[in-house]
């Protein structure tokens, strides 16, 4: 039984500076149907800049599908997606990524037979050698770009304490390290909005906190993040606001503390 979203959105109890912020991403009435199954049904959310927005809900709630629709991996059946004032609904995934809407995946999706640093470099959008023409023009044409990007990638590897793994094949990494590679890879695009699909699943518990630290540090640098996650204590620590989905619809949103007081939400998800 969906609760009136507006009522909840209007209780920004812990918001430091409400209402004044212009949302970075506005999804309006987004639906995604698979052959009659309504995986996502009329979802409208705003993602505010400079925050980590959490997206939680029971399995099958449509969170990952919604994320895929936002990123363009799946086309929306209806609704509109506005990124910073531009309608991106009709754009394919790669064009959205180039506009700064970059996602990671729930299942590990590293480029297995590329080294760690190559995973990062492959994602870099501004390499003159990254076109058939550029490649044919030879190394002299793209060497400067390449050197600059290698530096950029190495800075990221340092920041994520992965420098030692630079030349290892990504397939040889642990689950948590693969997550970090995917996040770093996304950061190479210098995204405006990073969509993380369960960045802590399949990760050793000792690394979960580390990933949360990285996310907070990125947010403090001004990056906007929308994150699907099941680790509720981490969501509570990092995310404000938190959006709850169930059965394809948004059933509530607000701070985690506020959500815990919503009986319907607790019934639908937080308890079982």
């Amino acid at each position: 039984m969906p609760v009136e979203t507006d009522a909840l959105a209007a209780t920004p109890a812990a918001d430091p500076q409400p209402s004044a912020e212009r949302p970075l991403l506005v999804a309006s009435h987004v639906s995604r149907h698979f052959e009659g199954v309504r995986a996502v049904e009329d979802v409208s959310i705003d993602v505010l800049p400079g925050r980590i927005t959490g997206l939680i809900g029971p399995n099958g709630a449509g969170k990952s599908t919604f994320l895929a629709v936002l990123a363009g991996t799946l086309p929306a059946s209806s609704g509109t997606i506005i990124l910073d004032g531009d309608d991106v609904t009709a754009l394919p995934a790669f064009r959205r990524a180039r506009r700064g809407l970059v996602r990671t995946f729930q299942l590990p999706s590293e480029f297995a037979q590329l080294t760690v640093i190559e995973n990062l470099l492959a994602a870099a959008p501004t390499n003159r050698g990254d076109s058939l023409r550029g490649a044919l023009l030879g190394k002299r044409y793209w060497r400067a770009d390449e050197n600059r990007l290698v530096e950029q990638a190495r800075d990221l590897l340092d920041r994520f304490r992965m420098s030692a793994k630079e030349s290892d094949y990504a397939s040889s990494l642990s689950g948590g390290q693969k997550r970090l590679v995917e996040i770093m890879r996304a950061l190479m695009l210098q995204p405006r909005l990073l969509l993380l699909d369960e960045p802590m699943s399949g990760v050793h518990p000792s690394i979960v906190g580390e990933i949360a630290d990285y996310c907070e540090s990125l947010r403090d640098d001004g990056l906007t993040i929308l994150m699907v996650e099941h680790e509720l204590h981490m969501i509570e620590r990092m995310c404000n606001p938190v959006i709850v989905m169930a059965q394809g619809s948004v059933i509530g949103q607000g701070t985690m503390t506020a959500l815990r007081q919503q009986r319907e939400i607790v019934d639908a998800y937080l308890v079982g």
Binding site: R95, A97, F105, S109, A122, D130
Partner: peptide, 28 residues
Amino acid sequence: RIINSPYGRSLRAMRENEVAAKALGKNA
């Protein structure tokens, strides 16, 4: 020249995981 260039790297990335490559801005 092609395979040792950044473009060759992008091609290999696409080979490894096309959906991920698209999500990173590659026009597969």
